[in-house]
Structure formats: structure tokens, C-alpha cells
Design a protein around this nucleic acid. Sequence first.
DNA 1: GAGCACTGC
Length: 703
Amino acid sequence: MAAPWAAVKFWKPGTEGPGINISEERQSAAEASGTSIIYNPHAAFSIEQQRQKLPVFKLRNHILYLVENYQTVVIIGETGCGKSTQIPQYLSEAGWTAEGKVVGVTQPRRVAAVSVAGRVAEERGAVLGHEVGYCIRFDDCTDSQATRIKFLTDGMLVREMMADPLLKKYSVLMLDEAHERTLYTDIAVGLLKKVQKKRGDLRLIVASATLDAEKFKDFFNQNETSDPNKDTCAILTIEGRTFPVDIFYTQSPVPDYVRYTVETVMKIHQTEKDGDILAFLTGQEEVETVVSGLIEQARIMSRSGMKRHLRVLPMYAGLPSSEQMKVFERVSHSVRKVIVATNIAETSITISGIVFVTDCGFVKLRAYNPKTAIESLVLVPVSQASANQRAGRSGRNRSGECYRLYTEEDFMKLPLSTVPEMQRTNLAPVILQLKALGIDNVLRFHFLSPPPAQSMVQALELLYALGGLDKNCRLTEPLGVRMAEFPLNPMFAKMLLESGNFGCSAEILSIAAMMQIQNIFVIPPNQKALAVREHRKFAVEEGDHLTMLNVYEAFIKHNKSSQWCQKHFLNYKGLVRATVVREQLKRLLSKFKVPKKSSEGDPDPILRCIVSGFFANAAKLHSTGVYRTVRDDHELHIHPMSVLYAEKPPQWVVFNEVVQTAKFYMRDVTAVESSWLLELAPHFYQQGTHLSRSTKRAKVDEL
DNA sequence: GAGCACTGC
């Protein structure tokens, strides 16, 4: 094999030919784009001067005019234009927060809601939580009297609508980052269209990307004539403040993007001037492979006299937060930082100083099969919108470069945008929420992108089986109404509400809380064996649910000690969060007068209670050694992370979810008795109602 | 026998 990086050849569209030297290309592109002024928000200007320098400022009066005259304004706000922080202030200054009214701004992520609120409070010289506040789960930093500009997560807005369906306190709502099309943004969009019909005074601002602007406009425009003067929705574009990014493609498809990522990063390091590198891959394993590959290459190079060093850092959600923080640390001028990341770096975190990006062209996305009701995680090519978002991570401080590890031809074949989450998820939680918000006919709900009808049917079927809906698909009283109040998947809500009847609400609360936290068990790549040995200490033969209960109870017993967590390779922050989640769930159980009881060490009531919520996710071990779902005979396997993976496989199990990678794997698995299924879910497995298929009955009756 | 995108209530 030749020098590993020598094989990588990129070319830039619109140039003479392929195989161009990267440095020359960059230089000519920089010349063509002209000089740009670097914007530094923390330079020595007054806050007012800084605000006026933002691109959005020039359009201040135009925005206010549109909001005054159109019920909905779609704003195409490019990165760095200042829309999220400025528009709410303009609205407030123009009187939209008079008479106790509030301007609300939603964000898809908690950190964004908090940080943007902080920035705006600072600009207004206000104490966060008074005039300017935020509201996210577990953290309501607003004052019901004083708050005029409120930042909140889109999920929180949907929750607020349960108490106040017409959102009466708001005069304007701005849905920020609506182009991301998260589940809750889409729910909010559908609901707000309904609210607007009853509240002509409510103004809506949808902040979106160019691509979806027309779709949002068509959705909200109530003008049924062909006269554009009667439009109720307008579109406005605000230019951003970013720097040009040169895009490079490979000449031919690469056979192995993991290896080519290493090669490309090393080539950039050798031939390019200063600037950090961000490499996009699809999962933890790929990230770790590339990290060790780069460290090895860098070692070889420094031995052969390379002066500038590489600092290689992994970044993915499962990484302990202390490790995650390292990507934000500054390094000395002689060191180049390389961050090897999953999709977390596409939208969720922003690292400054990135000049070069490599993009493998793939992503792991959630998918939902409406026929089997199985959610899975699948590796798919990214969309063009996603690829452009990745490229844009390089042009934030100065002009950047993006190396796509695929051909331009392949890029053109990619879908323009990612399928909205609404169309690739289990809808049971969504339908329950909509029902609780008084949407009787969910099949006729106005979705921005309607989900598959079969997904709706699956959701209705499950909710009926859980007892949350009656035969006419109406929310049951009190069970369905209560289930909808839980910020959880309906199966968890059912399990919690039943826990009083089984006399184990204390244990079920801990289990439900723990199941909401990802990556409780930390496995550092260099101490894998030791970590696994420590984790084994918590394992019980009943399965993952009781193992999690063990971990939680041990954490409490050791006074929530972070040192104790470290010693046992447990995610301290995750466990703390579990205690907070548990408190919230406990308050809901008290509200519904579910008796507080403990089974005092008896596992049986706990397992039966789990079955009362998760009976639909049951599987039986077949003689061939594989599991099959009871409801439709789908082949499943125990996930290697499950404690039952190493045990003698039990005959019957229930599970929380299925992930599809190489096989269909059940996650969070617990051994049960088949008689419990018949006893606790007779309606689902025996009676064969009009909603459930008769095949289900046959499967259990065989036993 | 062998594996864990990312949010959010």
C-alpha cells in the first residue's frame, strides 16, 4: 500500500479538473470571495452598537410591519443573522408585550433555550427570570407577572397547551429552528394552525431554512383566493454573517469512509495552514476507530519530524461529560485540534475555530416500521440539507473547507431534506397528547407532513390495549387522561399508574426514571474489561429493569456520591438526572393518589407491574434459539448490552424497545411468566377485539 | 453469541 493519504483526491466543482492541490485551490477561492470582516460579538462596543451591527437590524421595521399585517411570517434567517436574540426584543419594543402579553420563542433543545435567554437578558440589562426568562422541563425560570420574553423548548409549549389550549398569554410566538422538523415542532405547528383560527390576534413567526419556507407558507396561508394581496402569510429572508465554504468532492466513490476520513484529515494536516478539523462519522465505534487511527498516524509523522502536533478528540453523546468538555478547550498555536464526532456536532453543539470539515455522507436515523410496530436505527445517506449544515460548521469564524467523502454526482442524488421525525416514529405518544389536547379525530389533524396511516392505526391500537382509549377512540377517564399527563411513553405511564395496585410504586418509580436516562453504564474504551466487571456487580437474573433498580438504590445508599459512580463506571450526571425525573413522576403519582408502597424486596409484584405496561412488547424463545414477538412472530435477539445476554436465555421476556443494527435487538429486557401476559393483558392476547388482529390470539393460545 | 444517531416532555 502507498502512503495512506496519497490515494485521496478531491476536486472542486466548477474548476478545470480533478486532483487539484488543496492549498492552491483554497487560495484561489479566497481571492474570488474577497476579504471579509470578522465579526466579534464581544468586541469593545456597547451592547446597543453590537445589536445594530447584526444583519437583522436593517430589517427591523420591515419585520415589525410584516408581523403587524400578516398572521404568520416565515423568516429565512441565515446563520449568524441574529434573529433569535433580536426579533423578540424588537417585538417587545414595539408594544407586543404590553398589557401583560408575552412573546414566546421556542427552541428544539434545552441548552439553546437557556443560552439564548441568557444572552437576551444580558442585552437588556435584565435579571434572567424577570423580564426575560426561559422554561424547560425541571427548570422554570420565569416570573408569571414580570416575564415578557419567554424562551422555551417546543415540547414545553405543547405541554402548556394542555393547561391553556389557546395560549392566551402570548401575543406572538416564534418557532425557531423549525426547519429541523423535530417531533414537537411539528406537533406545535399543527396545533398553532388550529389556534390561529380561533385567535386572529395571535401572531406566528416561523424561523426556517430556504428549502422549507414555501411549505410553511402554504401550510399557514389562509388565503383561498388567487389574489396575493389577501395572503395571511409572508416570507422574509435575512442574510447571515458567515464565511464562504469551499466544497470538495472525491473523484470516485470511496470504498471505506472510515479509512478515508483518517487519510483526509492527515492530508489536511500536512498541507493546510492553521485551523481545527471536524470529522463527521455515524457512530461511537467509527469515531473511536478513527481516533485511534489518527493518533497512530500522528505518532508516525512526529517521528519523521513533523513540527505541528495533532490533538485528536472524540465527541459523541455517550461520552462522559468530562471527556466531552475537552473539545471546547483551547490548544496552543502549535497544535491542531481534530474533533471526530457523530451527528451531535451537526446541530446540538457548536465548536468554534473549525476551519475544515470532513463528511462521510452517512447518518444513523430512527426509522419506524408501521407494519411490525418496530422502531429501528438505520444507517442512511445524509440529505443535502444535512450535508450543507455539516459543511457550514467550518465557516463560522473565517472561510472554511468541507471535504465530502463522496462524489458530486452522488451528492446530487441525495434527498433534499431529511424525512421529518413525525413520519419515522412510533406515534403512540403523539396521538395520546393530541387526544388530551382535544383533537378528537387525529386522522384528520392537519399535519405539516402527515405520518403513514398505518402508523396511526398501530398507535391507536396500542393505546386502546393499554386502556387509554375506548372503543370509539376517545380518551378514557381517568386512565387515558392521566396517562397523557406523564412526560413519558404511554407504556411507562400505564406501568406507573398500575404500580399502586401491585404494591410497588416505590420501585417502579425508580425503574421508570432510570429507563429515561441513556448511557448509565460508562465504558471507557481503554478500561473496557474493568468497567464490564464493575457493571456485572449490579446484574440480576431477572433482567435489566431490576438491574437498573439495583443501580439506583445503590446510588441513593451511597449518598449520590460522584466518586462512587466513578469507581463503578456509572454516569453520575445521568443518575442525578434520574433522581430529578423520579421526583417529577412521584409528584404525578401523588396527584393521582396512587398509594406509595414498596414490595419490600419481593421481585414478583414489580415484574408483573412491568408486564402491565409492556405486555405488547413480549417475546418467546423458540427452539431455534431466537426470540420471536408474541404479537406478530418477528425475529428478535437480546441486545449484547443486556444483562440477560450473558445469562441462560429465559423462555418469555418483555422489552422496552427494539434497535435494528445487524439484527433486531431488544433493549431493556426482563424475564416474565407467560401466564402473566394472559392474566394482565387478556384484551390484547385473548379476546381479539375489533382493533387487534386475530393472529395475536393464536400465538398465545398455542401455549 | 457481539454492539450502543440525537433530541424532548
